[in-house]
Every structure is written in C-alpha cells, then in structure tokens.
Amino acid sequence: MIKKILKVLQKDFKTSRRDFMAAYIIMAPILIAIAIAVFTPGLNDTTVNLAMLESDDAAHIEYMEQFAKVEVFESVEDMEARVEKRDDIAALVPAGDSYEIVVQGNEPEAVPGYTKVLEALYQLGATKEETTAELMSFGHTVPPLKTMFVNMMISMTVMLAGMLIAISIVEEKTENTINAVNVTPLTQTGFVIGKSLFGGLTALAGIVIGLFITGYGDINWIMIILVGLSSMILSLVVGFIQGLTSDDLMEAASNVKMLFLPIAGSIAGYELLADKWQWTMYWSPFYWSYKANLLILSKTADWPTVLLCTGMVIALSLVVYFLARPKIREGLS
C-alpha cells in the first residue's frame, strides 16, 4: 500500500510541476519569505520613537538620534499631545537635573525600558565606539513585526496546501481519471492519503524553506512541524471538499480562497482583541496554530502550551473532517 501511495504522491508532484498555477502556488511561500526578509527590519534596526524638547541640550538630542528616531517639540504640551497619538512614542521631559519618561501607557514594555537605558547610557557618557556591547532586545529575541509577518506566511502556506489539493482533484475530475484509479487495487483511503501527502509535504517544505530564508533557522523545529502538520488537517479537508464540488480550476481556487477569511479573522482576533475577548476566537483552529507559531517563532514556547494549541487544532479540524467525510467519500466514488 505504501508503495502505491508514494506513486500517487510522485505522480501529483510530476503533474503539478507541469501546471503553471500549481507551480506558482508551490513557489508562493518562498517568494513571500524573500519579501519579508528584504523589507522587514532586522532586530538591530529596531528602535523607539522619542519626543524631546527643542530647548534641550543639542548634544543630548544628537546622542539620542544615534539610537532612536527623535522628534523635537517646542513645548511640553506639544510633546504630551504627540504621546497621546495612536503609535508608540516616549517623551523625555526635563525635571530639574534629571528627566522623566512620559508614555501613554499602552506601549510595549520595551519602549520605556529602551528609553530608560538610552538615557542612562547618555548620563554615563557611554559612546558607540567605547563599547563592544550590542543592544539585542527587550523581552524579545526576535523582531515582533517580522515574527508576525512570518507567522502570517505560515498560515497562508497552510491554506495553499488546500488549494493544491483542490486543483489536483479538479484535474482528476475533469480528466475523469478518478474512475480509472477506482478500478485498480489502490484503495480510496490510499488515494486520499497520497493526495494529502502531496499537499501537506509541499506546504511543509514551503514553511521550512520560508523560515530559513527569513532567518528563523534556530527555532524548535519539532514544535513548528507539529503545529504545521496539525493545522494542515483542516486545510486538506477543505481542499478535498472544494476540489470535489468545483467544476473547474478557477472555481476551486476562488472557493479555497474563502479560507483566507477565518485565517485573517483569527490573526486579527489574536493581535487586536483584548485578553478578556480572546475566548471569542477559540472556535478557530487557525487561532490556536497562530498563537502556537508566534510563541515558537519568538522562542518563548513551552511544550505544554504547544501541545494544548496542537490538541485544539486537531480536535477542531477533526470535527470538520467528520462532518465532511460523507461528502468526500461520495465525491471520490
């Protein structure tokens, strides 16, 4: 049976290499990873925004400009008005012989922390040339923005696995080759496994290559592969259903794109909802996989959390699978 499953896998790889759309889908995660690597800032480029008074010591402003993006204002009121705007910025307000750091209150801890360290270094008279130290992070081992983009790339690649399956099934349908396979000793289960391996392995390869390109080669690979494989279950199920219910490639591709909605919704929910509202996203397997991947990519994941997230992804995906199984079996007959 394994030999036959591998033959289906090999055949699907061969036919997809000869199909423009499938080849593009296979290449998409790699192209996205290159874009992320090129356009998102590296960790050492990470900085904070600082608001300072125009009347402040020019040397002080010049010193800070080496390490932070500095905006100067005429008055303390102007600085405070600036701090109250939506983005993250800290104001250095003179208070006698020292300075006070004024923030809005909703910034990451790194913002006031980084500002405090910079001010201390200035007070101590430390210069770039005198130190061998390098500022790495405050609470983060990798850049948060880049991590978010890479995590989104992983989610999208998982969805592409479903799209590959859908395209492959539609081709089998239009060429009527499913009937030809059905009169061979290959079982329907073997056929489904072969096709799933094709979508799953392609997406997994895209994720691995993408992570290396974006500089995440030193993460816990067992964790990331575990989460990746579990989150593919739902994508593959959707791929099979859409493939079997669509009449042509374009219809299948556009139907699978609907998966973007729960994926994007899950990401937005995780990133934007307050802690007390996070439970509203618990229904989505993509929420759990995004959460687990974020922890793994930022190297703060522990096994209990990863296993909990993986378990939730598998459980929710299996519910969808069992609901869809009769339709898949009927479509393949």
């Binding site: 033959k7 055949k11 061969k14 009527n176 080759t177 009937n179």
Partner: peptide
C-alpha cells in the same frame, strides 16, 4: 472506458507506468 480518461500532463508512457505501479 468509453470516455478516454488519461492524465493530460503525463506522457503516454508515464500514464501507463503510473497505473502499472498500482
């Protein structure tokens, strides 16, 4: 089959070799 059903993206030989392995 009455209606031909072969993989269009595979060559004639690849088609037969694929089925042979099943």
């Amino acid at each position: 089959f009455e209606q031909s059903n072969v993989y269009g993206k595979l060559t004639a030989k690849e088609n037969l070799e694929f089925y042979a392995k099943l």
